[in-house]
C-alpha cells in the first residue's frame, strides 16, 4: 500500500515497474522452459553419441553443429534450401487454396460434396509412397515434392475448412439473409471469422506434413539440387553428421514456415473487419 506521503507519480511509477518486472519474469519463463528442455535433450543426444562411439552411426551434437556451420557458409547450401523451400511452399499454398475452394463448393453443393469427399478420403488414406512412385512414372523429379506436399496437405485443408464452414453461426446467416447483406460483406463478417480458426489449425498441421512428405519424395526421387538429394547422398556416404545437419535444417525450416503462416493469419481478422465495414 502506498503511504499517504507518496505522490501519485511515485505510485504510478511503482505500479509500472512491478508490471514490467512481472512481464519480464513471465517472458523469462516462456523462453527458459523450452531452453531447459532443449538442453536436456541435447545432453541425452551427447550421452548417446558417447555410448555408441561411432561417428558414422550417431554423430555428436557438436559434430553436427560444426558440419551445419560449414554448410551454412556455402552457396550450394542456400541454393539447396531455396530449391526445396520453393517447391514445398508451392505445394502447401496450392493445397491451401484448392482445399479451401473445394470445401466452399462442397458446403454450397451436396453434389460437389458427394463427388469430392470420396476422392479426398482416398488421398488421405493412401500411403504417400504410392503417390511418389506413381508420380515418378508420370512426371520429372523436380515437380515431385510440390505435388506430393500438395496431395498430403489437401485433405487436411479440405476437411478443416469444411468443418469451419459447417460451424458458422446459423442465426447470423439468417440475419444476413433478412438484411440482404452483400455476399462479400457476409463472407468477411460472418464466414471468415468462423472458418479462420479451423484454417489456422489446418495450416499448423499442414506445414509440418508438407515438409515431411515433400522431403520424403525428394529422397525417393533423388530430386536434383534438393534437400532430399543431400540426405540421400549422406546415407550413401554413411555420414550421420550430414543426415542430422540436414534434418535440423528441415525442422528449423518447418517451424519457421509454420510461424510465418500463423503470423500472417493473425493479421487477417483486422483486415477482414475493415473490409466488412
Amino acid at each position: 500500500m502506498p503511504t499517504p506521503s507518496r505522490s501519485v507519480e511515485q505510485c504510478r511509477e511503482m505500479t509500472s515497474t512491478s508490471a514490467a518486472n512481472g512481464e519480464a519474469a513471465s517472458r523469462a519463463k516462456r523462453v527458459g522452459r523450452p531452453l531447459v528442455a532443449a538442453l536436456f535433450w541435447v545432453a541425452v543426444w551427447q550421452f548417446a553419441a558417447w555410448s555408441v562411439d561411432k561417428d558414422f552411426l550417431l554423430a555428436s551434437p557438436w559434430a553436427v553443429m560444426t558440419r551445419l556451420a560449414e554448410l551454412a557458409f556455402t552457396i550450394d547450401f542456400w541454393g539447396t534450401v531455396g530449391w526445396s523451400l520453393a517447391r514445398i511452399a508451392i505445394g502447401f499454398v496450392g493445397a491451401a487454396v484448392v482445399g479451401a475452394l473445394a470445401a466452399a463448393l462442397a458446403a454450397a453443393s451436396r453434389m460437389v460434396d458427394t463427388l469430392v469427399s470420396p476422392l479426398i478420403s482416398t488421398i488421405r488414406s493412401a500411403p504417400v509412397v504410392s503417390f511418389i512412385i506413381l508420380l515418378l512414372l508420370w512426371t520429372d523429379t523436380s515437380k515431385l515434392s510440390a505435388i506430393v506436399a500438395f496431395l498430403m496437405v489437401l485433405p487436411v485443408m479440405y476437411a478443416s475448412v469444411l468443418e469451419g464452414i459447417r460451424h458458422r453461426d446459423r442465426s447470423l446467416l439468417e440475419a444476413a439473409r433478412v438484411f440482404r447483406v452483400p455476399f462479400a460483406s457476409r463472407v468477411a463478417a460472418i464466414d471468415m471469422p468462423a472458418v479462420l480458426p479451423f484454417f489456422a489449425a489446418a495450416c499448423r498441421v499442414g506445414v509440418g506434413l508438407a515438409w515431411k512428405s515433400g522431403v520424403a519424395a525428394e529422397v525417393i526421387g533423388v530430386a536434383d539440387g534438393s534437400i532430399g538429394e543431400r540426405l540421400y547422398e549422406a546415407k550413401l556416404f554413411l555420414s550421420s553428421e550430414d543426415i542430422l545437419a540436414w534434418t535440423l535444417v528441415i525442422v528449423v525450416l518447418s517451424v519457421a514456415c509454420e510461424s510465418a503462416v500463423l503470423r500472417l493469419l493473425r493479421r487477417v481478422p483486422g483486415r477482414v473487419e475493415r473490409s466488412a465495414s
Partner: peptide, 15 residues
Amino acid sequence: RLCAHLDAVANVRLV
C-alpha cells in the same frame, strides 16, 4: 444476432 467481433458501427454499416 450481432457479429460479436465487430464494433457497433460496423454491425450497423454491414446492413
